[in-house]
């Protein structure tokens, strides 16, 4: 199993395609950082428009923590596309290349193959997120400095103290990892059904795009189905950036406003992963390799 995983990772990281995602993340994060560094004040004025009418907001508002939040907000919606690039190709790519039949005539069980490939995709996803964290958080810390973070929600504003943020990002990246692994497992499942990688990649992307649009559209008739779309739960990481308040409306450091809901969202995603993975195993074990 370990050997198979090594082999799968070897295959993933020997392919140029793998690095497209890392390059894309680097470029996107860089562009956002560059833009915010250059013209962040205007962006903040726009975001704080309503608040500025009643309040004077002073300090290093556009610091690394807010920049990282903005980056995650913008990018995490699109990272699934990069992940489907690899995940949608895991089985279908080998079927297309003709290596699947060779691989499956080896003394390894198909379940092992599924697990090894899934784990490899998971590791790839985690590395991608780690890379993103390094760029979005740590590079931003160098460029923008640290400080308190203002989380501008649609109904209210949360001010987080700078020493109460890092653990939230660790939790948020952990949540994002679960969300992205959900995407990976969906792409992986779809890759079982095709003999070219374009189909599953595009199918995964389409599912994500359509679901995300439905999840974010604030239209009443779609609200009923939102809880059943896993993409709705994928932005649950934002939950870590809201705090509880005491009777005096004073934010309590180290708390999460709706931890239960965030955990529930994470649980739903984990269930999706288990579901997609189980389906993958069942499909793959029964699959006749005709490619």
């Amino acid at each position: 199993m370990w050997k198979l995983l090594q082999i799968e990772l070897f295959k993933i990281f020997k392919r140029p395609r793998t690095y497209i995602s890392f390059a894309a993340i680097t470029a996107l994060v860089g562009i956002i950082q560059f833009g915010l560094k250059l013209d962040g004040t205007a962006y903040m004025e726009f975001m704080l428009r309503d608040l500025s009418m009643s309040f004077d907001i002073e300090g290093n508002i556009l610091n690394a923590y807010l920049v990282c939040f903005i980056i995650l907000q913008l990018l995490l919606v699109h990272v699934p596309l990069l992940i489907s690039l690899i995940a949608g190709d895991l089985i279908s790519g080998e079927a297309n290349m003709g290596t699947l039949r060779l691989l499956l005539t080896k003394p390894i069980s198909r379940t092992e193959v599924v697990f090894a490939k899934f784990l490899a995709a998971t590791i790839y996803t985690l590395l991608l997120l780690l890379w993103m964290a390094i760029l979005a958080l740590f590079v931003s810390l160098l460029v923008f400095g640290s400080g308190d973070m203002l989380n501008l929600k649609s109904d209210y504003i949360v001010q987080l103290k700078s020493n109460d943020i890092m653990w939230r990002y660790i939790a948020a990246f952990g949540f994002a990892a679960i969300a992205m692994i959900t995407v990976a497992s969906l792409g992986f499942l779809l890759s079982m059904f095709a003999e070219n990688s374009i189909g599953p990649i595009v199918a995964t992307m389409s599912v994500i795009v359509v679901f995300t649009i439905l999840s974010t559209l604030d239209i009443p008739i779609f609200n009923a189905i939102k809880p059943y779309l896993f993409t709705t739960h994928m932005i649950g990481w934002k939950g870590f950036f809201d705090v509880k308040v005491n009777a005096d409306n004073e934010a309590i450091a180290g708390t999460v406003q709706n931890l239960g809901k965030v955990m529930q969202a994470a649980g739903i995603l984990v269930l999706h992963i288990i579901g997609f993975l189980t389906a993958s195993i069942l499909v793959f074990r029964k699959k006749d390799v005709l490619s």
């Binding site: 050997k3 198979l4 070897f10 020997k14 290349m97 003709g98 290596t99 039949r101 060779l102 080896k106």
Partner: peptide
């Protein structure tokens, strides 16, 4: 086994391919 066209991993070298399949062959 060689099944029809013996397709291997095109982005790997010949040696890497042989080594990889030797490993999986137990």
């Amino acid at each position: 086994a060689v099944i029809e066209k013996p397709d291997v991993y095109k982005y790997l070298t010949a040696l890497e391919n042989v080594r990889l399949f030797a490993k999986i062959s137990g």
